[in-house]
Nucleic acid binder design. Structure first.
Length: 417
RNA sequence: GGGGGAAUGUCCCGAGCGGCAAAGGGGGCGGACUGUAAAUCCGCUGCGUAAGCUUCGCAGGUUCGAGUCCUGCUUCCCCCA
C-alpha cells in the first residue's frame, strides 16, 4: 500500500476506502499543502439514507477529520431527472413535494457525522436545484452541451450496460451525467471545490465532472471512488429482516441498527471496522485477529462504534445493554421494541397469527401460520406451532408484557393499554 | 411504413400438450448445527380459521373449463424500408 504525504489520503488508503482516483499523486500533493474542499452528492430518492450510503458519508467524515472542508450536495435538481447509472429500467419520476420531503429526511443524518458552520473546515450543505433549475434549455445546451460528445457518453459502462441489455434509456436520463458534471464545475467556481467522491458506480459521472471543471475553469479537479461493498459471502450490504438498514432512527431503531452490525460475518469484522467506525487502526488490527467465539467481542465493539456515529453514545449504550440482556442473560429489557395493543383485544383473546401481523412481525396471517408451523414463532420463549392459538391477558408475564419473537433475533414486546 | 418475436407468481430470473395456485432456480424467511457468524442440511415463500377467493401486460371473445386458442390495445426487442 502506497504511503501518502497527506493525512487525508493516508487514512482513506489504510482503511480501504479507495477504489479509483483520477490522479492520486497530484491530489496528495494538493491535500498536503493545505485544506482542500471535497463533495459528495446524494439524490433524494428516499426519505432516509441507508447503510449503502454510509461509506460515502464516512469519506466526508474523514475529509473533515483530516482538516479539510466537506460539502454535502443535495440532489434536489438531479433527482428530478433520475440517475440511470447501472439501473436496468427508468425509475418513476418523483414529484417536487416528494423530493423536498425526502431531502428533509436525509439532511438530519449528516449532523451526526459533520460539523456544519461558517469556519474554514466547517461542512456546508448545498442543493443543486439552486443552480440547475435556473438554466434555460438552449442556454444549458450551448454552455455545456458543446463539451460532451455522444461518442464518448455511449462508451461509459453505465450507459453501455443499459443499451447492451436492450433496455431503453430515455433522453431525460441520458442528460443526468451532464447535470452531475455541471454540479462539480459549479462547486468549483463557488467554493473552490477540487474533489468529488462517490461509489465506484459513479466513476463515469465523476470523471465527466472532473473534465468539465478542468476545461471550463482551468482548475485542477479530482475524482475518487470507493470500492463496491459486499459481505464476505457475496451478499449486497445493507439489508436486514425488515428491509434496508436505514440511518434515520424513525426508519430503523438504534437497537435494530446495532443488531445489524452485531450480526456481521466473521470475515467482515476488520473491513467494517475500518470503513464504518472511527476506531484507531491499532485497535482494529487487534480485534480482527480474534478467533472463534472471541470475535463476538469484536462484533460488539463494531456495533457500538458504528451505532455511536449515527445515533450517539447514549443510544449505542442502550442498544448494547438491551441486546446483552435479551441474548446473553435471557432477561427482558423494557427497551426492546414495544407495541401497544388494546387491552380489550387481549381480553377477548386474539389469534396469534393476527397478533404477529398486527405488530408487524409478519405480513399476513397465512405467513404467520406457516412460520408457526415451522417453529419460528414463540410467545414468552415457548414455540407455538399453531398460529390459530389465542393469545390472551393470561400470557402477560411478570412485567405486564407479552414477549413475541419471530425467529431468534426479532423480538417484540406486546403491552396492553 | 412492412414483417417477426416478447411480456408469467406484485424481489429477480424462468418453464408452462386447454384442467394450474402454475415446474425449477436465485433471493428472502424459519428450523437444526453453532458463537446473535459463515458453511451445510431441512422446511416455508398469493389471500383467507375454513368453504373458498384472487393471480400470468390491458380489454373483450371462443370453451364445461384459458397463462395456454381468437380479436383489439399498450409497452419493449429484432429484421426489412
Amino acid at each position: 500500500m502506497t504511503s501518502f504525504k497527506s493525512d487525508f489520503l493516508n487514512v482513506l488508503s489504510e482503511r480501504g476506502f479507495i477504489h479509483q482516483c483520477t490522479d492520486a499523486e497530484a491530489l496528495d500533493t494538493l491535500a498536503s499543502a493545505g485544506p482542500i474542499t471535497g463533495y459528495i452528492g446524494y439524490d433524494a430518492t428516499a426519505s432516509s439514507l441507508h447503510a449503502g450510503h454510509l461509506v460515502q458519508i464516512m469519506l466526508l467524515y474523514w475529509l473533515q477529520k483530516t482538516g479539510n472542508k466537506p460539502i454535502v450536495l443535495m440532489g434536489g435538481g438531479t433527482t428530478k431527472v433520475g440517475d440511470p447509472t447501472f439501473k436496468d429500467t427508468q425509475r418513476p419520476l418523483l414529484t417536487d413535494e416528494q423530493i423536498q420531503s425526502n431531502m428533509n429526511g436525509i439532511k438530519s443524518v449528516f449532523n451526526s457525522f459533520l460539523n456544519f458552520g461558517d469556519g474554514a473546515t466547517d461542512a456546508i450543505m448545498v442543493n443543486n436545484d439552486d443552480w440547475l433549475s435556473g438554466f434555460g434549455y438552449i442556454e444549458f445546451l450551448r454552455t455545456f452541451g458543446t463539451h460532451f460528445t455522444i461518442n464518448r457518453m455511449l462508451t461509459f459502462d453505465s450507459v453501455k450496460l443499459r443499451l447492451e441489455r436492450e433496455q431503453p434509456m430515455t433522453f431525460l436520463e441520458f442528460n443526468y451525467m451532464l447535470m452531475q458534471a455541471v454540479d462539480f464545475r459549479e462547486l468549483n467556481s463557488t467554493y473552490n471545490c477540487v474533489l468529488q467522491m462517490g461509489g465506484s458506480d459513479q466513476w463515469g459521472n465523476i470523471v465527466n465532472g472532473v473534465e468539465l471543471t478542468r476545461r471550463l475553469n482551468q482548475k485542477a479537479a479530482f475524482g475518487l471512488t470507493t470500492p463496491l461493498l459486499t459481505t464476505a459471502s457475496g451478499a449486497k450490504m445493507g439489508k436486514t429482516v425488515g428491509g434496508a438498514v436505514w440511518l434515520n432512527a424513525d426508519a430503523l431503531s438504534p437497537y435494530d441498527y446495532w443488531q445489524y452490525w452485531r450480526n456481521t460475518e466473521d470475515a467482515d469484522v476488520g473491513k467494517f471496522m475500518r470503513l464504518f467506525t472511527d476506531l484507531p487502526m491499532d485497535e482494529i488490527r487487534r480485534l480482527e485477529a480474534l478467533q472463534g467465539v472471541e470475535i463476538n467481542e469484536a462484533k460488539k465493539i463494531l456495533a457500538d462504534a458504528a451505532t455511536r456515529l449515527v445515533h450517539g453514545e447514549a443510544a449505542a449504550a442502550t442498544a448494547r445493554d438491551t441486546a446483552q440482556k435479551a441474548f446473553e442473560q435471557g432477561v427482558l429489557s423494557a427497551d426492546l421494541p414495544t407495541v401497544e395493543v388494546a387491552r380489550a383485544e387481549l381480553e377477548a383473546g386474539i389469534m396469534l397469527a393476527a397478533l404477529t401481523t398486527k405488530i408487524g412481525l409478519t405480513q399476513s396471517n397465512g405467513e404467520a401460520r406457516r412460520l408457526a408451523q415451522g417453529g419460528g414463532l414463540r410467545v414468552n420463549d415457548t414455540a407455538i406451532t399453531d398460529g390459530n392459538q389465542a393469545v390472551t391477558l393470561a400470557d402477560l408475564n411478570a412485567d405486564g408484557v407479552i414477549k413475541v419473537a419471530q425467529g431468534k433475533k426479532k423480538i417484540v414486546l406486546v403491552k396492553p393499554v
